[in-house]
């Protein structure tokens, strides 16, 4: 397939996944208010800005950090290249350049979602955003279903999955990093009722609550961290994403007969997870662990670009 097309599919998929992640993060935070707002001064919005990685941009353009501003920044702000609106616009522009490759219904799903959020962004009253986030999640599920049911198992599908898994691993890692930092400020909170509620929210942000319960029954930070980093069967855990991405990279390498090291770099990430455990990670510092993970994930992304997208 064309290098440009592979690149567009990869980014279409990443942007869709990114929009989906942000929608989940905000949605859960808004619902969290209902559980704890009466007790605590305010629900934490700063972690969401930090998890987006765009805090510098935020503080350049917004003087105060509160719910209204954070929600706007992450959802509708078209100057923020990673707002949901920007992500869906970019997903659509990429989809448009590969219209002839992807199933028509996939293009239509993305196109409709774009028109939906465009319309929403122009509403004067934006006090109820829950239907918007619900729609984004639903559309993304439809998109995933179309990919699963209507696409050839060829390069296009594997580039799509690769983009999705790399983006997802990155978002889960960021969320965990930021939440861990904010939720463990003082020892007295640990394993308090608040703690259970907040960590429950972290799980909900990645649709993990129910699946986590099956395995661990009760919520605490160690088990949540283990589940989100190491669980081999949960589709949003870092470990699962790395394994899937590696398998797609393997398929692409087999089909293209091109191997400029992307697979090797991804395998290093897999090794990194295999050779450690949650207790070791927590003892040595979760933040440091995730920092190294993200650094290496960026290397993978760059090698993918050099191997398949940039042909001189």
């Amino acid at each position: 397939m064309l290098s440009r097309v592979a690149n567009s599919i990869y980014w279409m998929s990443r942007y869709l996944e990114r929009a989906d992640s942000i929608a989940r993060f905000i949605d859960v935070n808004l619902k969290l208010i209902l559980d704890i707002a009466l007790d605590r001064e305010n629900v934490q919005w700063q972690p969401l800005v930090l998890a987006s990685g765009d805090e510098a941009d935020f503080f350049k353009r917004y003087k105060t950090l509160d719910q209204k501003r954070v929600v706007h920044f992450l959802t509708f702000d078209n100057l923020n290249p990673n707002s949901i609106l920007s992500c869906i616009l970019n997903a659509r522009e990429n989809a448009r350049t590969v219209r002839e490759i992807i199933p028509t219904e996939l293009w239509e799903t993305i196109n409709e979602l774009y028109h939906f959020i465009q319309k929403y962004s122009k509403k004067r009253q934006k006090d109820n955003l829950l239907p918007l986030y619900a729609q984004i999640k639903a559309s993304n599920n439809v998109a995933c279903g179309l990919v699963a049911n209507a696409m050839l198992r060829d390069q296009a599908l594997h580039f799509l999955r690769l983009g999705q898994m790399i983006e997802r691993a990155d978002k889960t890692a960021r969320l965990l990093d930021v939440k861990y930092f904010h939720l463990l400020p003082s020892p007295e909170y640990v394993d308090s009722p608040y703690d259970a509620v907040e960590w429950g929210a972290v799980l909900r942000s990645v649709s993990a609550f129910q699946m986590y319960r099956k395995k661990y029954h009760q919520v605490n930070y160690r088990d949540v961290s283990e589940f989100l980093i190491f669980d081999p069967f949960f589709p949003r855990s870092i470990n699962y994403c790395v394994n899937q991405a590696l398998s797609s990279l393997g398929a692409i390498t087999d089909m293209t007969k091109v191997d400029m090291g992307a697979k090797g770099e991804m395998a290093k990430l897999q090794q990194m997870l295999l050779l450690t455990s949650v207790d070791k990670v927590l003892a040595e510092g979760l933040h440091e662990f995730i920092d190294i993970f993200q650094f290496n994930l960026n290397i993978v992304d760059q090698v993918i670009y050099r191997s398949f997208f940039e042909l001189k």
Binding site: M1, L2, S3, R4, A6, Q155, I252, M255, T256, K257, V258, F308, F309, L311
Partner: peptide, 15 residues
Amino acid sequence: DLVVENDELMLRTTK
């Protein structure tokens, strides 16, 4: 996406 090499037209593909 296209380039001419030795008077032949070529597509830049992942392969």
